[in-house]
Design a protein around this nucleic acid. Structure first.
Lengths: 213, 213
DNA sequence: CGGCATCCGCTTGGATACTG
DNA sequence: CAGTATCCAAGCGGATGCCG
């Protein structure tokens, strides 16, 4: 029950004791998008065994990272204020790991919550501030993602809505965000399919969301 | 040999695959201070079994995080440029975990490298920029630590040198950095012992290094 | 059903001993 | 000093079962 300790007394060690166990930071990643039910977490982490998920949820509660709240018949897990302070850690690790992303293996999937956090990672507020407000839509794993950029503020939600630019894509979007693939070439070679709106807006998208390798 | 994967394709997952294994980030923490030999790493991580240390060093090399270089008879490990980019991750996690540090348990130790990174975590460049350049010295685990602050730049090294203020302390320094304990009270109740220089400089130290809970 | 708990085979990690 | 080898315990992964 108690996290295995490292026998040292400093912040990094303490952090690892609290969220260093396997799967823990991925649970935090998904909860950074919003509160989730047990089944939603399990769906977003398809390979996590249910006993491990249950164990992590208890440990994260004991660490004051998440809260379990019974909300009218259903149980919902959400980050505590302290848990929300992990956002810089998750974003920093996500940015670092993004640079080591190669091409996806067959069994690797992209979930809507992972995509949401990846977009937050790659988002450049200072660049977006100088661009017109824009709403994008894309589909991840049969979930519609609504990406609204308004000045330096990014908001990614599930669901539909009026957008300036809608597109379909796959894991190849990584090359677009890393700058390896130019927007027009991404459309030309089919990595991105324009569903709605002028194709030039993909260039704005790639400028707004960028993380160089 | 290959890190266990999570079956997902995004930056956080990739990051966890590369440095998410037990002990890995602590090795990176110590190497962020400087290149280290195998024995030095083992000394800084007293509870790591040698087979695990050896395994992690190989995995981190395979992940292009560290490099093993035979330097004139002795082998030294050092971070690659990509590995050095983990510094924001380590600092962010250290800052987060610091806030959850309680009082130390008996078996918990503070190593010089851990202390060095903790100081880097708590360092406030913008505050230090407005203070006079100052050199501090403190002793951690029979190692003398030289802490030089010059404007917004911090440099922590092992070894001796001329300092403005030297002090002895223990794990209670956490309360000083967190602001729970005022500098004069820290001296009064013996948490900090002034070895050299005017006691008022401890206030400057606490202003320079601060991380509120 | 959603939310877990249990069981079991397997992989890691931990402690110690050993070697070039 | 810089690792490797061995053995055992603990944690993980996968399947399955229970219970409100």
């Amino acid at each position: 029950m108690v996290a295995r300790d490292y026998g040292q007394y400093d912040g990094i060690t303490r952090g690892l004791e609290l969220v260093g166990e396997r799967w823990a930071l991925l649970i935090v990643r998904d909860l950074l998008v919003g509160p989730r039910r047990y089944g939603e977490l399990a769906a977003g982490l398809p390979r996590i065994p249910s006993n491990i998920l249950a164990a992590r949820l208890k440990e994260l509660q004991a660490a004051d990272v998440i809260r379990r709240l019974p909300r009218s018949r259903v149980v919902v897990y959400e980050l505590t204020p302290y848990g929300r302070e992990l956002e810089p850690v998750v974003l920093a690790l996500g940015a670092w790991g993004f640079k080591a992303l190669g091409d996806p293996r067959d069994e690797q999937i992209i979930t809507p919550d992972a995509m949401t956090m990846s977009l937050r990672t790659a988002f450049r507020p200072s660049v977006a501030a100088d661009l017109p407000a824009t709403a994008y839509a894309t589909r991840v794993d049969s979930t519609e993602l609504l990406i609204r950029v308004d000045g330096p503020v990014l908001d990614v939600t599930r669901g539909e809505g009026p957008v300036d630019f809608a597109f379909a894509t796959d894991a190849g979007i990584r090359r677009l965000i890393s700058g390896e693939l130019a927007p027009d070439r991404a459309i030309a070679c089919g990595v991105v399919q324009v569903l709605h709106g002028p194709g030039e807006l993909l260039h704005r998208f790639a400028t707004t969301f960028h993380l160089a390798a």
